[in-house]
Design a binder for these strands. Structure first.
Length: 167
DNA sequence: GCCAACGTTGGC
DNA sequence: GCCAACGTTGGC
């Protein structure tokens, strides 16, 4: 299993909204960066991802999601009404992908950027690199677990939260 | 709102 | 293929 971090502006889409979707989950659409897209293509059903709230005060990790459907074309790319419309992608030749994610856990409180930076065990996180702007990044297993602990969600609770993804 | 850092575009 | 200009991201 691989662990991930995915950014969202909570005014656009908050973890709370994902929680209300329940098992149906939600497509993670609008990714328009090749590197981020390629990370999404590497995601497998059952992978866990941190939900990172960006462009808000304070930015930070709100909880955990699970990948419930692997990468498939993102139709918002060829929807002229979508803010993510991008002429590079067409239904015949899709360029951009989305995955479906479902809510797993919401932290007791947001693990904010300051807390992430203050923790030596997290120093290698891509998100903490200067100038980092990637909206989808892999996260080391140890860092993932550490952030869950900081958020008050232990491994047990994660394991209990739903069908554990086969691997 | 500012601005540094980055990815993308497009002229050459 | 270089690289300057531009648009976007996202913390502050």
């Amino acid at each position: 299993m691989t662990y991930w971090l995915m950014k969202s502006e909570p005014e656009e889409f908050a973890l709370e909204t994902l929680a209300r979707r329940g098992a149906r989950g939600e497509p993670w659409n609008g990714v328009r960066n090749y590197q981020a897209r390629n990370f999404m293509r590497a995601m497998r059903v059952g992978d866990l991802a941190l939900f990172y709230a960006s462009n808000c005060l304070p930015p930070g990790v709100d909880g955990v999601m699970r990948v419930i459907r692997e990468a498939y074309p993102d139709p918002s790319a060829w929807d002229p009404a979508s803010p993510y419309a991008d002429s590079r992608g067409t239904p015949e030749r899709p360029v951009w992908d989305q995955v479906d994610v479902a809510w797993v856990a919401t932290f007791d409180r947001r693990v904010d950027l300051g807390a992430l930076r203050a923790d030596a065990a997290l120093a290698d996180m891509l998100i903490l690199r200067r100038g980092n702007r990637l909206s989808v990044t892999p996260v080391a297993a140890a860092a993932f677990r550490r952030i869950c602990v900081l958020g008050g969600v232990g491994a047990l609770k994660l394991g209990d939260s739903g069908r554990e993804g086969a691997r």
